[in-house]
Design a protein around this nucleic acid. Structure first.
Length: 246
DNA sequence: AAATCGATGCTCT
DNA sequence: GAGCATCGATTTT
């Protein structure tokens, strides 16, 4: 079974033609409707769920890249041991977690990668964007991802372009220099657009990834959300999926 | 499909 | 100096 078409954003698309030249004419670089401040001004877990199906858009060298968000995680601040803002911790790095909802928090990790978050309502809370389903600018995404790969490695499939938090940053040319602290509700370089609405019954709720050192209690909290059966999700959780009806 | 392991440098203690 | 909200390549089932 090869490349099953996503139930949410496959084949035929609707809104934005995928032809090489975009017909967005005015200053606002948006084909889909831009998500504004009120969309982001929600409690963290609500925002994380509602971001599923929305479209992350990025303009690089005049070309607009788009990907539908299919996996997110909440980082709550306060008691959340896994959060950079645990116990109200505030440093130069995590300052954007305390900024207005819709502000982007981009941090560097493992010396070579970045992760993209969006500030939500609540002190020090944000949503990590973990994976996207590529929509527009796929050739550019492949080019961006290919830079750091050996020429003899297997060609990337579409669903491998943005199936991880740092992969999507590479694919969409998101770095701390370029995007940290940017207000996504007004930027013309990076923003979000209204996409699909994912039914509650198609959202898998699972534990977060890569935070074992936070200890069992917080590492196991169900604060990761992803679109059921979507091929672009970075890590699937069979047990969590079993509790969905289908 | 899963396990293993090295890369590589920012951020905070 | 230690610890990463990871990835990519190689090796093993």
């Amino acid at each position: 079974m090869d490349d099953v078409v996503s139930p949410y954003f496959g084949g035929a698309d609707p809104k934005c033609s995928t032809e090489s030249s975009h017909s967005c004419s005015d200053e606002v670089p948006s084909c889909g409707k831009r998500l504004g401040k009120s969309f982001f001004d929600k409690e963290c877990t609500t925002l994380a769920k509602e971001l599923l199906g929305q479209v992350l858009a990025r303009k690089v060298n005049g070309v607009i890249l788009r990907g539908m968000i299919v996996e997110t995680e909440s980082y709550l601040g306060g008691n959340d041991v896994a959060s950079h803002s645990y116990n109200g911790k505030r440093t130069p790095r995590n300052e954007p977690m305390y900024m207005a909802p819709g502000t982007l928090y981009v941090y560097s990790i493992y010396g070579m990668y970045y992760c993209l978050n969006v500030s939500s309502q609540g002190e020090g809370s944000c949503v990590l964007i973990r994976s996207l389903e590529p929509v527009d600018g796929i050739d550019e995404m492949i080019a961006h991802r290919s830079v750091k790969r050996t020429s003899k490695s297997k060609p990337l499939k579409e669903h491998e372009l943005c199936n991880g938090p740092s992969k999507l940053c590479l694919a969409m040319n998101i770095s701390k220099d370029l995007c940290n602290k940017v207000d996504a509700t007004i930027s013309e370089e990076i923003w979000l657009e209204e996409g699909q609405s994912i039914p509650e019954g198609d959202i898998v709720i699972a534990k977060r990834i890569g935070i074992e050192s936070a200890g069992h209690e917080w590492a196991n909290k169900p604060l990761r959300y992803y679109v059921f059966k979507n091929k672009n999700v970075s890590v699937k959780d069979k047990k969590a999926e079993a509790s969905l009806s289908e």
